[in-house]
Simulated assay, not measured.
Amino acid sequence: MKRFLYFLSLRTGTELIILTLLLNKISGFYGLLAILTGLHLSSLQLSMYVYSLFALALAGYLTPHLRRQSPIHVLGLAWFYVIDTVVNAVYTAAFAINWFLVIGQHHPTAVRFGHTILEPENVTSISIILMLWGLRIYFILVIMSYARSVLRQHVYSTSSSTGLYRRENPSDPDSGTSIENPFATNREDGKGWEGRLGRAMIALVRSYWLGVDEDDGWARGMGGKFRRSGEAPVTFGPMERERRRRSGTGPLPPPTSNPAGIPWATQGTK
């Protein structure tokens, strides 16, 4: 996935999606305040509001790192959104079942649970919920795609050109290749609990995060654009030398004649 809604960048789309998540989780704060007014909450409602406050705090901590493009935090935010989607699906299913049971109790004609679900107004509600969850799945793809691009840009900016790709199974020449794991134990980002967490998150669908695909050509073509200051840029052998020669930025060629007959090593010295 390259764009959000075909015309917005993935980062903009991710920011908008997380903004809706934060607004949704604020409801947990107001839900708990309702207890002070004497409102009775079921254990299911109370647990949902407590979870919403936890999710609000965690998402609020991770969100500023979207613009900083910190791979460990963006990756964590992507997986958190996936987990939050599953948790919300469980709560939605639980509330829906309770709702249909209540309707069945108050309507004598609804003698079966299946019959209650097939009521016209309930079918409409279920259709709307399914459409919203389809949109939620699309949001997951957007956030995961942005996290993947951040992770891979980080790898290209910190890896040497010779160690950028590794064969998954060195003993098997037919095995596929992958980019370096930025959270490997021998790398700076792989130290401490953050490194262990990063390796665990990448281990899930490892081929998606580190697998080599056709999209990697843009990073190789960019050369040293994403490299840290002070690092030598990546060169590409004869083609790069030819480009520099044509643009006039390469080294000057040696003179073709020496009319004075003075050796080059001593020419110009007294």
Score class of each variant (00 low, 15 high):
Y6A: 12
F7Q: 10
L8M: 10
S9Q: 06
T12P: 08
E15W: 10
L16N: 07
T20Q: 03
L22S: 02
K25M: 15
F29D: 00
F29N: 00
Y30C: 10
L32S: 05
L36W: 09
L36A: 08
T37F: 15
G38N: 09
G38F: 13
L39G: 06
H40E: 08
L44K: 13
Q45G: 08
S47F: 09
S47V: 07
M48I: 13
Y49Q: 07
Y49L: 13
Y51D: 06
L53F: 02
L53W: 00
A55T: 14
A55R: 09
L58P: 01
A59M: 11
Q69V: 11
H73R: 11
L75A: 01
L77Q: 03
A78R: 05
W79H: 14
F80Y: 09
D84P: 09
V87R: 03
V90H: 08
V90R: 15
T92H: 14
A94W: 11
A94K: 11
L101D: 03
V102K: 11
G104H: 02
Q105E: 12
Q105M: 07
P108M: 06
T109H: 05
A110I: 01
F113D: 01
G114C: 02
G114A: 13
G114S: 15
E119Y: 01
E121S: 11
V123L: 10
V123Q: 11
S125L: 15
I126R: 03
S127W: 08
S127Q: 15
M131N: 03
L132C: 04
R136L: 08
Y138C: 04
I140N: 14
I143G: 01
I143K: 02
M144S: 06
Y146K: 11
V155S: 09
S157M: 07
S157F: 12
T158W: 08
S159P: 13
S160R: 12
S161D: 06
S161R: 13
G163S: 06
R166Q: 04
R166D: 00
N169M: 08
P173I: 15
D174P: 05
S175I: 06
G176P: 02
I179Q: 06
P182D: 05
A184P: 11
T185E: 13
T185M: 06
E188G: 08
K191Y: 03
G192F: 09
R196P: 00
R196N: 06
G198F: 13
R199Y: 04
R199W: 03
R199Q: 10
A200W: 07
A200S: 03
A203K: 13
W209K: 02
G211H: 07
G211R: 02
D213C: 10
E214H: 04
D215S: 10
D216A: 04
G217S: 03
W218M: 04
R228T: 10
S229C: 06
S229Y: 02
G230R: 01
G230M: 04
G230E: 13
G230P: 02
E231F: 11
P233I: 08
T235D: 04
G237D: 14
G237F: 07
E240V: 02
R246I: 12
G248K: 07
L252H: 05
P253T: 11
P254E: 14
P254S: 05
P255I: 12
G261V: 13
I262V: 09
W264L: 12
A265C: 02
A265H: 03
A265L: 00
T269N: 00
K270H: 00
